[in-house]
Design a protein around this nucleic acid. Structure first.
Lengths: 356, 356
DNA sequence: TTGTATGCGTTATCAC
DNA sequence: GTGATAACGCATACAA
């Protein structure tokens, strides 16, 4: 092939061969020099590095991946990037992955099976080295079988197995699970409500979202154990979940003493919907959330919630995945502690000097 | 997809050659059959497809990219995935890209030059076909020169050029720019405040964030034109931007008539910080935001803001990029309309039946 | 310490 | 219609 041919105006990409040629060494030497191989002499190394900069050489990740059979890419399947909770976890995941030298591919499943399947297929084609599942409805077990490697972490899973036995999740032996201790969190939350004088409690959730049933069932169990009362369940459609009026309507006319919401976003929506109806929080009803997103701390009234370590979750997911990839062993289930944050939305005596 | 066949647990990955061998055709034929090439006979096509499913063949994206010199990947450099505004835009960008057959690589720059440079390098190595810049401090012009192709869109740029002339941005000729009509939005906002009786107005921004100076300067100009008053500027550090107490302190003891915040998040933080100080909104001071994130509609008082079409922005960015890649022509600057949403945080007569 | 040769899995260019 | 063959750009086993 005529290498002395001047490249057409199409500006050919500069490759390793080009920098090797400029220095007067072989491609292997150039490759090794840039990879920091110990057995390359200092002069040649610097020469190669200089040439690479001169030519503006940028290694091609596809070629490298093809050769080394590793993309240094992590995949994350999530429900919705725009959700504040998931966004926070995703941000931490990405940052930590970058620290470990990995890039991450985010795909949103929007809680739809077809999209999730499609996403899994994309992850497979892209040959991601590891995969994190967050807020997806797809069964992790199924993914793991379709996926030959065991390089899958299941972040905040919330369906199936954990419920059996009803005893909570401590010691859950399934590897690759990363979750917060929702059982303890919900227990603390319900205890707080009962201690605050609540008898009737309603759980507000989103229809069809499998996530949340653990929280709901735990609440049901603790409530009955403490007071004998039966947890009322209110469900709103996914499309209605952001409409305060619809949420308030779903709650209905006869208010419970407290409304326990699946997450903070839903709680804030409920707060607004109730306000529009003339219902006062916490005077007429308590409202509490779950997750501890920043906005929950800035609402009026400020929202009682369970703080989950979103950043830590994302970071741990990335670290666990990288460890599994590089060491070859997937960590056992890891449960992160949560913390109850009691705020004004569930407190009788309004603290502070605010209000008439 | 739905077959109950489990992929071979064998060590080697199944490749196109395997599929071809099973059917008894050449690799070329197998490749063409799966690609839907018109000149492949129906029998062989179905045979190849069946074999591919049987063997669990998954094409290798790296190999294909290497060969066809295209990754079908879009890059998006953003400030923070956890930010509700950026998360929303990112979600729409990803969804639309997927619709067009592209996968997207998100990298967060966290408003730090080094991280952004590193991200650009990663995008280059990964050979993304197009790049979207959102909330980054890096100069788009610089990126475009470092990037040989013109496959870069600049989403919501907020520095430099647009300010010259002071006349706004309509007809900005720079290609690849996608933005909302912030000038009109801020103008409407300031007019609303002035019409509501505000004389003194303060702008609350984040130090070091270049984004926002267009909004600030527009507010300054409109305010002076309308009332002759001088816009006061309050700045909080990036790390203090989420701390209500610090934000309230930054605002100081003598309140203006209205506080115009860089974005909704900052406004909500300010709302909470002021409340802690015993300052009532809107009675003592008006507070308004910008962006129109969902939480702004659910706060108490509900936040007056400028609604920006976040979903549309993300979608348009993806479409523009794909068009530039596939047709080869980058669209001229596109300006999306915004809408003023007047709510309780800047309204004297409190509407509705809420409150004592 | 450096060079040679080979192959990663795919698609495109030729032949037939 | 289909098949052989040659790249794409890189890393590495094996020589020297």
């Amino acid at each position: 092939v005529g290498s002395d041919e001047t490249p057409p105006e199409g500006a050919r990409r500069v490759t390793l061969a080009d920098v090797a040629e400029l220095v007067g060494v072989s491609k292997s030497t150039a490759s090794r020099a840039l990879a920091g191989d110990a057995r390359i002499s200092e002069p040649t190394r610097t020469a190669v590095e200089a040439a690479a900069i001169t030519l503006g050489f940028v290694p091609d990740a596809s070629a490298r991946s093809l050769r080394v059979r590793s993309t240094r890419t992590l995949g994350m399947l999530l429900g919705d990037l725009g959700d504040p909770y998931q966004g926070q976890v995703a941000a931490a995941f990405e940052a930590q992955a970058r620290l470990r030298g990995y890039t991450v591919l985010f795909l949103a499943g929007h809680y739809e099976r077809d999209l999730e399947k499609q996403a899994i297929a994309t992850f497979a084609e892209r040959r991601v080295d590891g995969l994190a599942l967050l807020s997806s409805t797809v069964d992790p077990i199924e993914v793991k079988t379709r996926w030959r490697q065991e390089h899958v972490v299941d972040v905040q899973p919330d369906a199936g197995a954990p419920l059996r036995g009803g005893g909570g999740l401590r010691g859950d032996p399934r590897p690759g699970v990363i979750r917060t201790d929702d059982v303890t969190g919900i227990t603390a939350l319900v205890n707080h409500l009962v201690d605050g004088g609540c008898r009737s409690v309603a759980y507000l959730g989103v229809t069809g979202r499998t996530a949340g049933i653990l929280r709901r069932e735990t609440a049901r169990r603790v409530l009955r154990a403490r007071t004998g009362a039966v947890l009322r369940t209110v469900e709103v459609g996914a499309e209605a979940g952001e409409d305060p009026t619809l949420v308030a309507e779903a709650i209905g006319p006869d208010l419970p003493d407290a409304i326990l919401c699946y997450d903070d976003t839903l709680a804030l929506v409920a707060l607004d919907g109730l306000r529009s109806r003339g219902v006062r929080v916490p005077e007429d009803v308590f409202v509490v959330g779950f997750d501890g997103i920043p906005f929950a701390a800035w609402s009026s009234p400020r929202l009682t919630t369970v703080l989950t370590p979103m950043t830590q979750i994302g970071r741990l997911a990335a670290d666990t995945l990288v460890l599994a990839i590089e060491i070859g062993v997937m960590a056992d289930a890891q449960v992160l502690p949560v913390e109850l944050a009691v705020r004004a939305s569930s407190t009788r005596i309004r603290p502070g000097h605010v209000g008439a």
